[in-house]
Nucleic acid binder design. Structure first.
Lengths: 110, 110
DNA sequence: AGACTATTTGGCTATTTGGCCAAGTAAAGC
DNA sequence: GCTTTACTTGGCCAAATAGCCAAATAGTCT
């Protein structure tokens, strides 16, 4: 039963990669307020529809998004609201300038 | 005072990008157990020392790591322990197969 | 069926990223 | 001051990623 598949590390990386792009991150942020169709998201990130569609495919394959077709439109939504806490962590890390002198306590929890 | 600098989105992206690579993520995970020197981390990810050093620079510039030179060795440590909760979120997202039928409740908190 | 709208997919190039080697720097030991 | 150890930096090439256009698909409407 050689059901090896991607390791935990690889799965983690694919989720993180799916957020590691300005347009994709902006999409994830926007979807925190509820589902949106592809054309709305295209307006948000202002790039070609095909480009947006490919970004969404990456996020979907990483497990970030669910899609649902209703009529002509396809609606995407976050599969997990835990992104909120995820972003809080990211913001704490990005709050201070890189390795600045007094940055040792960028997060209070230490 | 045109002190624009990188936007919040760009800063978030740079933190996330710094984790979006198997070696870098493995390093971040390892550092959850405390600081390590570069040569230890090189053993961990098993690539050229120069490659590891560049990975560490990326993580440092993103604000993820602090470095400290003691004697000949350079020690790196996480600047923020909130990565734990970050990874919990990532794991919830990566736990289920992409958009599988019954995956709507990959996270209980909904 | 044909036209129209919304989205995805394929193909192509341009840019970015990753990794190795070689050279450079910095602290320690002799 | 020369050697060794521990790392960083620069250069170069290969591979991955991003974005655009054109073509394909799917659902609506007439």
């Amino acid at each position: 039963m050689a059901k090896t598949g991607p390791s935990r590390l690889e799965r983690r990386v694919s989720v993180i990669k799916a957020l590691a792009h300005p347009s994709r991150l902006a999409i994830a942020e926007a979807l925190q307020n509820g589902e949106q169709c592809v054309c709305d998201l295209r307006d948000l990130v202002d790039s070609d529809l095909s480009t947006v569609s490919k970004h969404l495919a990456i996020m979907r394959e990483a497990g970030l998004l669910d899609m649902e077709k209703r009529g002509l439109k396809v609606f995407y939504r976050l599969r997990c609201p835990c992104l909120l806490s995820f972003f809080e962590c990211v913001d704490q890390l990005s709050a201070k300038s890189p390795s600045a002198p007094s940055s040792r306590d960028a997060c209070r929890s230490r």
